[in-house]
Design a binder for these strands. Structure first.
Lengths: 337, 337
DNA sequence: AATAGTAGCGAGAACGTTCTCGAAAACCAA
DNA sequence: TTGGTTTTCGAGAACGTTCTCGCTACTATT
């Protein structure tokens, strides 16, 4: 545009030295004298010099930018993951470019296809909940770009992943219900085929089997509060209703609680409810929601750390990291309030 | 790194034409024949060519990147604003670089100072709640970079702003309380000196005066749920307690409700509570929270739109946009439940 | 047929930085 | 002194684009 910024050449001209020397001084390389280094730094400071990342990126073939591709950020889990990512990225000199897919496979595919490979160093992604075509991500990987998936994994993509412990989380949630005397347990969950759905479902079913119990119904749908309420109504039957609901996330659990309360059912005493995430809302809703806490911030931080490792040491092998989930017991699974 | 991507030169070589022609064909300029244009586009597609934004940015002095600097994203308002920003930016070919300040003035100052002016085209910012030194932003503006503030404005910075209607929002909230028979109204709010705090406080006090009422206490602190509960306890006195609480945001309102319930007070019938934001939690808490809805998505979208206008037409004058707030009445201000 | 105009393309500079190479200057040991 | 090493620096190419200029060949006009 109209204004041009101070460049390395301007510094060189005012100091009457070469651009190469200025460049060296600014980058703290060894072969420049203390004296000229000080002169250069002082001039840069005074002239308010800022490096041009387009130029450095062009010659170094590196941009110090990472792309984060994620369905949305208006929920606790994703916004916390991003906070973890941004925090680690910033303190390591990387910038975060944010892409939202609105959980739409078409948006996701377009976003990935339009990604300028040369303007990012790596990708951190959480796929949409209803894709089964991942070739756009495969193209990125084929092009040699480090890609790390979190929260939702994709079997067909050979790449590093960072996940919460979905299986164990589902197990301890189910065990907790059983231990508290709930034996007719239903599960309301996300879209089938989504890794997180499948794994939590398996943890749920395996645990039931371990205690010689049968599932009291499994309902698949989306992840919203409204989906939770609908799912509850779908699995409910007045003759033989479940006595506990295990929800795939806290928003659906909240929906289930709302649905149950509309039916005049007392949460905890009559029907236990367990969520997953540890969204702040689980503390506020009455009764407070028992839930499996995911280490969202840590997942973001770890994923970013791993990505930067892959970027700076491209030979690093793919790695699958699983971070522990933890049960947080509250009133929604207490029989006597 | 190890892998180099397909460049315009590669296309030129395989097609046996010059790089200039390839560049023209890809950019759809007029002086290239239909035939070669088709050849180039086909080759680009087949070779999986992606433009190098470092190179284009270097010559065009534009990056199609905007920086968003914001205290945090783990709350409804900010995450929704960013969704609005990202949505508009993406559909206009701009990328969003996310910077979080954790509401720390030091982090903010460092972030802004380290911003490479040449690697972004503009800035969208919401300042921290406790800064009074804004010279780092002034430097950006002085350097000619378009800067737009939202949510929190700074008198001393002469730049465009996009805001919700804080004044009117506070007025209608207070009027609503008065109309419903609450006359001993206290206000729990954010840090003093913050624009949003001051403006909402003024709306509150002006409205009281208009009805010949006195404030029943004003408490300043942070924006969290815990701050809300603390503020409530600070203004509470058993001999002459307030009969309504107007909170600067929904999280503090929720904190106040929790505090009131701990005292055994019935929300609505005994003490009315009004929040600000329309956080999803206001629908879920019992009783549901009356609140002033802010058009968060619209604020983000409008701010981004205005920024892009400033970027693409630098002569555009500064503009102050205020988007309407709207009262949403729920149970927390209903006298008979 | 001569001239002017235009469509299509190539050569080469430029953007701001880093990198490689080599040369000058300074120092040191013998 | 000599020769060698080190320190410090400059010249110029390179990164992948766009842009300006100018050239050729074709078409249109007179």
């Amino acid at each position: 545009m109209a204004n041009r910024y101070v460049t390395i050449k301007d510094i060189a001209r005012t100091l009457n030295i070469s651009v190469a020397t200025v460049s060296r001084a600014l980058r703290d390389t060894y072969d420049v004298s203390d004296n000229t280094r000080k002169l250069v730094l002082a001039a840069a400071e005074k002239m308010n010099y800022r490096p041009n990342f387009n130029a450095t990126g062009l010659v170094k073939r590196t941009t110090h930018k990472i792309a984060v591709i994620i369905p949305s950020i208006t929920n606790y889990y994703f916004s916390t993951v991003i906070t973890g990512i941004q925090s680690f990225a910033a303190s390591n000199g990387y910038q975060v470019i944010l892409y939202l897919t609105n959980d739409s496979p078409e948006w996701e595919a377009r976003t990935v296809k339009e990604l300028s490979l040369s303007s990012i160093d790596g990708v951190l992604a959480c796929v949409t909940s209803n894709t089964n075509n991942f070739e756009h991500f495969q193209e990125l990987i084929d092009a040699g770009l480090p890609v790390i998936l979190f929260d939702r994994l994709v079997q067909s993509l050979k790449t590093s992943t960072v996940m919460q412990d979905d299986y164990n989380g589902a197990c301890i949630a189910t065990e907790h219900l059983i231990a508290n005397g709930y034996h007719r347990i239903a599960h309301i969950t996300g879209p089938a085929k989504l890794s997180l759905t499948e794994i939590r479902l398996k943890g749920f079913l395996d645990t039931l089997k371990r205690f010689n119990l049968n599932s009291h119904g499994v309902q698949h749908s989306g992840f919203s509060k409204e989906d939770g309420e609908n799912d509850l109504n779908a699995i409910w039957c007045d003759t033989n209703p479940p006595d506990a609901i295990f929800a795939v996330n806290d928003r659906k659990a909240v929906g289930a609680i709302i649905g149950l309360q509309k039916k005049g059912i007392e949460i905890g005493r009559q029907v236990g409810v367990v969520g997953f995430t540890n969204d702040p809302i689980s503390e506020i809703i009455k009764p407070a929601l028992t839930t499996v806490a995911e280490p969202a911030f840590e997942i973001g931080k770890t994923a970013c750390q791993l990505l930067i490792k892959h970027i700076e040491k491209p030979s690093t092998a793919n790695q699958q990291i699983v971070l522990p989930s933890e049960l947080i017991v509250r009133k929604s699974t207490t029989r006597n309030l």
